[in-house]
Measured scan of single mutants.
Amino acid sequence: SSGAIIYTVELKRYGGPLGITISGTEEPFDPIIISSLTKGGLAERTGAIHIGDRILAINSSSLKGKPLSEAIHLLQMAGETVTLKIKKQTD
Rank of each mutant, 00 (worst) to 15 (best):
Y14G: 11
G52N: 06
G19E: 05
L11S: 01
P28K: 09
T25K: 06
T25W: 01
S23E: 13
G40R: 04
K64A: 14
I32S: 02
T38F: 06
E27V: 07
D30Y: 05
E70R: 13
M77P: 01
K12T: 07
A57I: 00
P67M: 04
I22M: 08
D30R: 07
K64L: 10
Y14C: 13
V9M: 05
Q76A: 13
I34N: 02
T8C: 05
E26K: 15
K12Q: 13
Y14H: 12
L11I: 13
I6L: 05
R54A: 10
I58H: 06
E26V: 07
D30T: 09
G15N: 12
V9T: 03
T46W: 02
E70S: 13
R13E: 01
L18F: 06
F29H: 10
F29T: 12
I58V: 07
K64Q: 07
I33M: 13
E27C: 10
K66V: 13
I32W: 01
L68G: 04
G3Q: 14
G16I: 03
I20N: 01
D53C: 02
Y7P: 01
G24S: 12
I5K: 13
S36C: 06
G47R: 12
L18Q: 00
D53I: 01
I58M: 01
S60L: 02
S23T: 13
T38D: 15
I33K: 11
L37A: 02
T25V: 10
I58N: 02
S60G: 13
I5G: 15
V9G: 02
S2I: 13
L56Y: 05
G19Y: 00
T25P: 01
E10H: 07
I6M: 10
K66Y: 07
G16H: 06
F29V: 12
G52Y: 02
Y14P: 10
G65N: 11
E26W: 02
A4S: 15
F29A: 09
I20E: 11
T38C: 15
Y14V: 15
S1M: 14
Y14M: 15
G40D: 12
S61F: 13
P67G: 13
I20F: 14
D53E: 00
T21V: 10
I33R: 06
A57T: 10
L68I: 13
L18N: 04
E10N: 13
K66N: 00
E70H: 11
K39N: 13
T25A: 11
F29Y: 15
S1W: 04
R13C: 08
Q76G: 10
G3S: 14
I34F: 02
K39C: 05
T46P: 04
S2A: 05
L11A: 00
A4C: 15
S36T: 11
E27D: 12
R54I: 10
A43P: 03
S60P: 01
Q76T: 10
A78N: 07
G41D: 01
T8V: 08
L37T: 02
L42D: 02
S1A: 04
R54T: 12
P28M: 07
K39I: 08
M77Y: 08
I20V: 08
D30E: 14
Y7N: 13
P67V: 09
K39L: 07
E44T: 06
E27Y: 13
L42I: 14
G65E: 07
